[in-house]
Every structure is written in structure tokens, then in C-alpha cells.
């Protein structure tokens, strides 16, 4: 499964800042092509605006965003934009489906849709890339990954290989997971120690997982479930693996792994 470097294709990456993190877009081009970098730059500008649009509305870090106005009580949800209300409705629906493990409210009561917005932004950017006509690309926003096609157009069977960070040593990888078109286009990873413990366990408990990765057909589901499983623990892991078509890899506090069969290397099965 080790990807052999494909001599007939070359990977090009561009990065930009959005939502407090770095977004990188990598695309695969045949070697010797001339228009590649320009096409990639245009694609980046396109998705940059997707991220900016959502950030403008939903960022709590921006004083002028609608989310900040809601948080300060300047406007009420009933009077918020349809986009805001739709996003809130989706968050409520996710809360129900994850038995309360995923929630859009911080413990201090402030509405925080960022757990959903990043996934939505990535999904929207992915749609834009498809519409733009880019075929083989990999979009990584702060560790959440959505891919399309293959890194080596000469060999369409080849998957994008996503490494998963070892939470105990972030400079090394725990392992890898192949992503491709179809049911496994997205991979999201959540941790319990990032950004000052921004995920709380259900009922204020300390989370039993330090890191959870979820691979699935779309990035919003993967992202939400990864967050929810960190909060909801083993019980929610079982629920998620049963109700959604996803693969899950969870790292416990003492460094042990829990995984659905999809995370097993083929030879180890």
C-alpha cells in the first residue's frame, strides 16, 4: 500500500489562512503540463472566497460577524439570516442524532456553530472545485481532509494516502488511511486537547479518548462524528459506527487504539 511516486504526475500545493487555521489544496497534474499552476491558483482563489463567506457570518473571532452579534444578544436567532437558522437547525439535528454528544452550545451558553461550519466550508469548497473542473485534488483544512480522484492520474486505482497524527507525538504518524472517490472521500480528526479542550465530555466528564478520526462519505458527517465521539466516548463510537457508514479510529487516554475493521491494514485482517 506504500504509494510509489508516480513519475507521470506531480503534486502541487497552495495554502491560505482561514478560520484560524491553514487550508491547503493539493492537486495532481501530469508532468510536463504548462497551465497547471495557474489553474491551481484560480482554484485556490475560488475556495478562499467560500471559506471567507462562511467565516464572515459564523466566526466568533470577528466582532462584525452575525455569530458575534448573536452571542452578544444584539440579534435573536428568530431574526437571524436564513443561513444562520439553517445551520442552527442542522446543529440541533446533529445533537439529536448523536444523543447530545455533539452540541452547538458552549458550556457558557454561547451559541458556537464552528464545529459545524468548518465542515460545511470544506464541503462547499469541494463542490466549487468540482464545478471548476479540477478532478484530482486533496483539500486539508486544519487536519480535516476531503479528496477527489487520485494523486496519480496514470493509475486511477491509487488512493490519496492520509497520515493520522499520533496525539502523543505530533511529529509522527499513528498510521495511514487511504481516501478516494466514493464512500471514503472525507477524513476528520478531533482531539480533546486542542484549543484548550474545546470538546467537553458528555456531562462534564473528561473524555476517554484523546483523539478520534472518522472516515466517511462526506466531511460534515466525519467532522461532526469525530467531535461527538471524543465527547461521547465508547458508547457513541458504537452508535456512530452502527448508524453511519463510517470508519472510526479512536486513541484512548492510555494510548491504546479502538477501531472499526476499516482501519485495519489489509494484511492484518
Amino acid at each position: 500500500m506504500q504509494p510509489m511516486r508516480d513519475e507521470s504526475a506531480v503534486l502541487k500545493s497552495r495554502t491560505f489562512l482561514a478560520m484560524g487555521t491553514v487550508v491547503s489544496l493539493t492537486a495532481s497534474f501530469p508532468t510536463g503540463g504548462s497551465a497547471d499552476p495557474k489553474e491551481l491558483d484560480a482554484a485556490v482563489r475560488l475556495i478562499e472566497s467560500d471559506f471567507a463567506e462562511l467565516e464572515e457570518r459564523f466566526s466568533l473571532f470577528r466582532e462584525d460577524s452575525e455569530a458575534s452579534a448573536l452571542a452578544r444578544g444584539v440579534i435573536r436567532l428568530a431574526h437571524a439570516s436564513p443561513e444562520m437558522r439553517a445551520c442552527y437547525a442542522e446543529a440541533v439535528e446533529w445533537r439529536r442524532r448523536t444523543h447530545g454528544a455533539f452540541t452547538a452550545e458552549r458550556p457558557d451558553g454561547v451559541l458556537d456553530l464552528s464545529g459545524l461550519v468548518k465542515g460545511r466550508a470544506i464541503a462547499q469548497a469541494g463542490d466549487s472545485l468540482d464545478a471548476f473542473g479540477l478532478r484530482n485534488w486533496c483539500l486539508n483544512a486544519g487536519g480535516d481532509v476531503l479528496v477527489s480522484g487520485t494523486p496519480s492520474p496514470g493509475d486511477p486505482e491509487r488512493s490519496w494516502l492520509a497520515g493520522i497524527v499520533d496525539p502523543a507525538d505530533r511529529r509522527t504518524l499513528l498510521g495511514a488511511y487511504p481516501l478516494g472517490s466514493g464512500a471514503r472521500r472525507a477524513l476528520a480528526t478531533s482531539g480533546s486537547a486542542e484549543r484548550g479542550d474545546h470538546i467537553w465530555g458528555v456531562g462534564g466528564r473528561k473524555s476517554e479518548f484523546v483523539q478520534v478520526s472518522v472516515a466517511g462519505p462526506d466531511i460534515v458527517t466525519a467532522d461532526v462524528l469525530a467531535t461527538a465521539i471524543v465527547a461521547g466516548g465508547r458508547e457513541l463510537l458504537d452508535v456512530a459506527a452502527l448508524e453511519w457508514d463510517v470508519d472510526v479510529l479512536a486513541v484512548t487516554r492510555d494510548g491504546k487504539l479502538l477501531a472499526t475493521p476499516g482501519f485495519r491494514a489489509p494484511h492484518a485482517a
Binding site: 479528496v147 497520515g163 504518524l173 498510521g175 479510529l249
Partner: peptide, 24 residues
Amino acid sequence: ILRSEVLQAQSGNVDTVSGATVTS
């Protein structure tokens, strides 16, 4: 599962990296 059961990879031969959200 054991760590050895997960598909093994080095940082040099993956195409992208997934981890808990990285700040800029």
C-alpha cells in the same frame, strides 16, 4: 486493535495529514 494493525506509513510517503485541528 494494535498499533501494528493500522496501515503503517511515514510522514514522507503520505499525501496529506489528518490530526486534531491545528491553529495557524
